[in-house]
Design a protein around this nucleic acid. Structure first.
Lengths: 209, 209
DNA sequence: ACAGCAATTAATCAAGTGTATAATTTGAAA
DNA sequence: TTTCAAATTATACACTTGATTAATTGCTGT
């Protein structure tokens, strides 16, 4: 009997593949379905190999969470581009309510992770690190919009606006991603843009590009 | 050797206790920690007993989800009371951003469940049933507010407002429940009320009771 | 008081889990 | 071509999981 053929891969590639397989497993089978065997099978390797690249399964899952949150934040931020702050904000909003940021797969993975944060200190740390980034991004953007429009706004005002905007975007993202209602007939991008404009005291007409 | 003493309980009581134990386990240990043994231990019974009241562990978890969502919706709706639609809406908002609706335990359970909806058809059904209730509640309330204020609003307008309001409340609920930032210095109730008022085109001053 | 049934426990099982380790293969260096 | 460390596989182990079943207990009606 002969062993299955294999070939060496750089550490970075194997880690990336294992993390991708982990996220796929979680999305399709839930967190409970992301077993060592399932993940290794999807990554095209043998279960034992995982432990060469990650100390624990726990570490693998935590690494997958970090990657996931970073990718998600980047995907949202990628909608910003450059230009005036107002149009960057519009880009962020548009990206937040459309795929690939807003879709069922993303929500499933996110929820599975959030559900563990309370009981798993390792996950809690990974969470705290990654989640602040999005909040900071929005707060900075709101501040720039205010100065750009020469609106006097105290740091407290900006912070309040950022909290509310972040909440609205999170909520819209969840509603769209869950897909319970059919939003097909609705232009969710316009709804999001108009709502944000209203909250910031901006004429919605200025906000549509 | 003697067996442990026990006493009979009505079916409804045992089911309620088992569901409560399930939710406690999920909140404190995550969904993976809600094992048959852990749940039965917390409920003060033996693992085998679960199967007399629930066909599967899957059914138990799904039943726990139904109970959880129903209680959550009721807790939020309980803030409404009666009176003018505007003050009922304010009550709903206040309840949504304060404990026990908005707290870490609730969020953990919610997220754990949502993370399974995509991969578990039984959970998906339980989800779809329960989640519509909150949306309908908000939509009805928005409609009543509009007629009360004699503002002309088409069903589409009301629906749009309900979607946005629901998203904002969901998002604020999540942010507060996650507790990453310290909102201790901020009056989140006022922030929520002001934001909703702005979105509905109502003078925020009218909204504070 | 007691008979009988339903409720509950205790013990067990097969399957699946994460982990550990020895045996094997690969690929690059000499 | 040969060598040899590193990467990968295969196998095994101890443990936990959900489920099953027989034995026992509590309770209610008579």
């Amino acid at each position: 009997m002969t062993r299955r053929a294999f070939h060496h891969e750089p550490e970075a590639v194997r880690q990336k593949d294992l993390i991708a397989a982990t996220l796929d497993s979680i999305a399709e089978l839930g967190l409970a379905g992301a077993t060592v065997r399932e993940v290794s099978y999807r990554a095209g390797v043998t279960p034992g190999l995982i432990r060469r690249y990650f100390d624990n399964k726990e570490r693998l899952v935590a690494a997958a969470y970090r990657t996931f949150i970073a990718d998600l934040t980047n995907a949202a931020a990628a909608g910003c581009g450059d230009g005036p702050a107002l149009s960057r904000l519009a880009g962020l909003i548009r990206a937040s309510v459309t795929a690939p940021v807003a879709d069922g797969r993303t929500l499933s993975i996110w929820a599975a992770f959030i559900g563990t944060v309370n009981s798993d200190p390792v996950m809690a740390e990974a969470h705290r690190d990654g989640y602040q980034a999005f909040r900071d991004l929005i707060e900075r953007l709101v501040g720039e919009v205010m100065t750009e429009r020469q609106v006097a706004a105290s740091p407290q005002d900006i912070r309040r606006h950022a909290i509310v905007l972040n909440a609205l975007l999170d909520g819209l993202w969840i509603e769209i991603s869950m897909g319970g209602d059919d939003f097909s007939r609705l232009d969710m991008i316009r709804i999001a843009l108009d709502s944000v404009a209203t909250l910031l005291g901006i004429d919605p007409a200025e906000f549509r590009e």
